[in-house]
Nucleic acid binder design. Structure first.
Length: 312
DNA sequence: TAGGCCATCTGGTCCT
DNA sequence: AGGACCAGATGGCCTA
């Protein structure tokens, strides 16, 4: 007799989920008949219990229930065993489909994790953080495209980290070997000048902390406005408290239309964790810096170039 | 131990 | 009728 890792009190849900989980395992082929038998026994037991309970409930309620409820109860009563079985079978199938659907969703999220900065097999980003990071990443790329200006690493990371939790911020900063404090609190002059260029209006979130004066702010980019605003009425990634992908669409569909070209072969080892960027005080004179945007059809090359340094 | 995250189940709704 | 999608509920696991 096979001993399954759950006792008789385990619910059918547990049994069916275990059954589904094990389906992919080759071992299950050997023990499947046993699993099916236990499952059927469990289903049968539960079926009998539910029928008993339903009968008791109907007896209890028939006296004072409204007519529609009595009708419903009598309809239930009329459900034959075969009909009940069919209903339950449909429920089981629906559960399996739902699981499959959610697995598909999770696979898609995994794919997304691999194309955003800071992909790590060991420390997986949560679903919500993955979406937030992706949103910020798209926004940064759109900024680079629309302004034609490079972002220094600090700005890049700070923008990526907008709205992310502290652990994720740490992860992103860690990927780039940045001090987290500098990511969240101390924008450099270059960054500030860049914000000034973008600064159209303070925005609703800029009322509280500021970057000037105190030199310390939890939200240093509160007034970092996107040039897209005039076109799309969109705002910076930080402008909405909740996840709002809809307002952040870029001004045009650039997917597959551009690539980033390095001016010269890059030795990633000489840079912070591989990212080629212009550190503060090193005076990169090029307008575009390392990002030489060209209209080609090599989006994935861009993606690879941008992500290569971050992925460990 | 509380809180975050996740997988799963479930019933409702909409669509074909 | 049946499938896809969604949101709420629930319980397990992990971590600070």
């Amino acid at each position: 007799m096979l001993t399954l890792p759950f006792d008789e009190q385990s619910s059918n849900q547990t049994i069916s989920s275990l059954r589904m989980s094990w389906t992919s395992n080759k071992l299950v082929k050997l023990i499947k008949p046993e699993i099916d038998r236990v499952l059927e026994e469990s289903l049968e037991t539960r079926r009998e219990d539910e029928l008993r309970n339903a009968e008791v409930k109907e007896e209890e309620s028939e006296a004072g229930d409204p007519a529609w409820l009595r009708r419903r109860a009598s309809q239930k009563k009329k459900l034959s065993h075969s009909r009940l079985d069919r209903v339950r079978l449909r429920r089981i199938e629906a559960n399996a489909r739902e699981r499959h659907r959610m697995h598909g969703l999770n696979n898609a999220l995994d794919s997304l994790r691999k194309v955003v900065p800071c992909y790590s097999k060991t420390q997986k980003l949560s679903k919500i953080e993955t979406l937030r990071l992706a949103k910020n990443y798209i926004w940064v790329l759109s900024e680079i495209l629309s302004t034609g200006k490079r972002l220094d690493l600090l700005t890049f990371v700070q923008t990526l980290c907008k709205g992310l939790s502290q652990p994720t911020t740490n992860l992103v900063a860690g990927c780039l070997q940045l001090n987290t404090c500098s990511v969240i609190s101390q924008p450099d002059e270059e960054s500030l000048s860049l914000y000034a260029a973008y600064h159209h209006h303070p925005g609703p979130e800029a009322g509280g902390s500021t970057t000037a004066g105190s030199g310390r702010s939890l939200r240093p980019f509160g007034s970092f406005c996107s040039p897209f605003e005039s076109l799309n009425d969109s705002s910076s990634p930080e402008s909405s408290g909740s996840l709002d992908m809809g307002t952040l669409s870029p001004p045009f569909n650039f997917s597959g239309l551009f690539t980033l070209k390095h001016e010269e072969p890059v030795d990633y080892r000489s840079c912070h964790n591989g990212l080629r960027y212009c550190p503060i005080n090193q005076g990169c004179s090029s307008d575009l810096g390392p990002y030489d945007i060209q209209l080609r059809g090599q989006f994935y090359q861009v993606q690879g170039e941008l992500n290569k340094p971050f992925h460990n």
